Simulated assay, not measured.
Amino acid sequence: MAGSVVIVLLAAGEGRRFGSVKQLADVDGEPMVRRSARRAIDSGAPVIVVTGADAERVEDALTGLAVHVVRHAAWAEGMGSSIAAGIRELRRHFPHATGALLCLADQPMIEQALFEAMLTRHRVAGDRVLASEHDDVMGPPVLFPRDCFEALVDWSGARGAHALLEHESARVERFSSHGGIDVDTPDDLQRVRAAIGSTSRETSV
């Protein structure tokens, strides 16, 4: 797809703090990774999912979804390595992509309005770096324009792309996000389940 943003959904970690494969944790009746992938697909952008730890089970949870899966053998090197794997795959399959929207599989509450706002802004300001902000903390989802691909394709380390955000701070725009809870621990999962349950009850009234 020419001139498009591609979503790179990172789902390769082992969930050490969580204590098990958090990508497969049940969120509102489905594995968390599947819920996150569905929400990414609903944005209308192509979606690449980077798997790693327990790859077969995580990939099974994505069965039937219109996503491109890349299994990253070196996932244990950290999130930076998984980002690089996703960007390499993006460049192979979507050579005309104008941006990469990096998302985390453990953020199952990211709102569609955030995706829409970022994609819309990219269409008119394609040179800007677009980052979400939750509780005054900047992070994923974050949209990097095409001229950042060269840096990201060689990325490494455990800290994700925060260093690149800092380096590009002069052209970063922030987007408020109310659904940016990272599920790092079982307590985080309970918070997400409670929040989703509360929203469902409000919708049904």
Rank of each mutant, 00 (worst) to 15 (best):
L102F: 11
M1N: 10
V69Q: 11
A2T: 07
P141W: 03
C148R: 09
I41K: 04
V5I: 11
P140E: 04
C148G: 07
A74E: 15
R201T: 10
F175N: 04
H122K: 06
Q112W: 02
D147F: 03
E150W: 09
H178S: 12
L62E: 08
V21C: 13
M79F: 08
M79T: 10
C103S: 05
A158M: 04
P46R: 13
G86K: 13
D188R: 09
A125P: 02
G139D: 02
E59A: 14
I87Y: 12
A66E: 12
G29R: 04
A37I: 11
A53K: 10
L152D: 04
G99C: 06
G139R: 04
G86Y: 14
A161H: 05
D60K: 14
S198D: 07
A84E: 07
H96F: 04
V49C: 14
Q112V: 00
S204F: 00
A25K: 01
G78F: 08
A11C: 13
T185K: 11
A25C: 01
R174V: 00
A40W: 00
G78S: 05
G179N: 02
E59L: 12
A125S: 11
D106E: 07
A105W: 08
E77K: 14
P31L: 09
R34W: 06
K22V: 02
R121P: 00
R17G: 01
G78N: 08
D182L: 06
A53L: 08
E173G: 09
A84I: 01
D106V: 05
Q112F: 01
S82E: 14
E77T: 04
G179S: 03
P140C: 04
D154K: 06
V69F: 10
D188E: 05
A55F: 12
A40P: 01
A2N: 08
C148S: 14
S177V: 00
A194P: 03
H72S: 15
R92G: 09
A85V: 10
V21H: 05
D54G: 15
R16G: 08
